[in-house]
Write a protein that binds this DNA or RNA. Structure first.
Lengths: 214, 214
DNA sequence: TAGATTGTTAATCGATTAACAATC
DNA sequence: TAGATTGTTAATCGATTAACAATC
């Protein structure tokens, strides 16, 4: 089973964004010691239809068994593999302010298939220090660092005002993926550059809307 | 124009989530000194169709003018009003760790229609201190605080392990909206409780997926 | 075996895009 | 006025849900 990951040519963004949710739910079932689960039961717990679950999984392989359902641990492993939790994507963090700090100190990168090797900042107050064992280097040295080290993703935890120019600078020396925390829509002429955005302000605005129009 | 906000009964989540993006783009146009814009031009800049823009706006009113397009500043004001940037939703932050700190120090709450009045934590190390002028109180006093103060939203920047129990505790004393930074799917039996999630891990997993399947 | 449940095909639903009359 | 562009209705597309034969 799952010997051929990726059965469909085009997997929609919506499906991909549901995968982490499945992974969390299955992890929870594992912790609760539940061995098997049907699409029906899983759907009931997650508030989605059994049909959708079976459709989603079928994009990636055949993980179930008629009359039985899914083996929880096995399915969790499969989805984990699809998401790449067993990978070791290398990341650096640009901006060692409060948010960069928070990520370096608390975020479980390795659980999600990533590792952080260093942070960069422009402030002399933090340059040369270590945060949770990771060195903080001067931003001026980032090009040299990138020429000497493999970096798969750059997290941007910098002010909005320098977001695009910083991205441009990094793209110019080969960076092709960003985890973008600035509430700015970054653009690149290179279609191979990936941006994954976490827009705090956008999120809060939608919450404000829903509060007001409840 | 816009005298009757909310023309459709049901506005889809997708539309609402695009509004902050429109608002940002229009703010940008304002800054650039651009006075009028057509749906075509706006769409080209944002990478979406003119049709979608006109459909989206038409959910809330008639903001344009045939042959002219939209007055940028006026449209920005209208969308800002729909999103409630002129509101003053009251927020408290539960968890004054690195992420809570980051929000208290850097996030432009008032620009987004919110204000933060206080933070709460269980750690004696921060209880009694002030962060960016906001008091940090003991978590044990949160029920009393909520009985004496209006709180529209609670931001949760606490460990996953205590997320649901903390939410339950707050819902029990009347909290009806959460800005949830724990990577946990919070639930409530009360259908009036709103959860707006920022799931860092889910976001990073989808980025990992896209890197691997590029 | 009989009951349960899958993976997949077909039907439905909703969201996006296109078209166009209205009109500035 | 003529050209441009809206708001809206119709057409298309894609995603979700339902149905069901296959089979454990």
């Amino acid at each position: 089973m799952g010997e051929n990951i990726l059965r469909k040519e085009k997997i929609s963004d919506a499906v991909i964004r549901r995968l982490p949710r499945y992974y969390r739910q299955l992890t929870d079932l594992c912790v609760r010691g539940i061995v098997r689960v049907s699409s029906r039961t899983l759907g009931d717990e997650m508030g989605i239809t059994a049909s959708q679950i079976r459709q989603d999984f079928s994009c990636f392989g055949e993980f179930g068994q008629q009359g039985y359902g899914y083996h929880v641990e096995e399915l969790r492993t499969e989805i984990g593999r699809i998401l790449g939790v067993d990978q070791n994507h290398r990341m650096i963090i640009i901006g060692a302010g409060h948010l960069g700090h928070a990520l370096l100190r608390n975020f479980p990168f390795s659980q999600n298939g990533f590792s952080v090797d260093a942070a960069f900042d422009v402030s002399p107050a933090v340059i040369g220090s270590y945060i949770n064992g990771k060195p903080v280097y001067a931003m001026s040295g980032v090009e040299e660092y990138l020429s000497e080290n493999i970096v798969d993703v750059v997290a941007l935890t910098i002010p909005q005002s320098v977001a695009q120019e910083t991205a441009d600078r990094l793209i110019a020396v080969g960076v092709r993926a960003f985890w973008n925390f600035t509430n700015v829509e970054l653009v690149s002429t290179n279609p191979n550059v990936i941006f994954e955005n976490i827009h705090f302000a956008d999120s809060l605005l939608t919450l404000g809307y829903r509060i007001a129009h409840r």
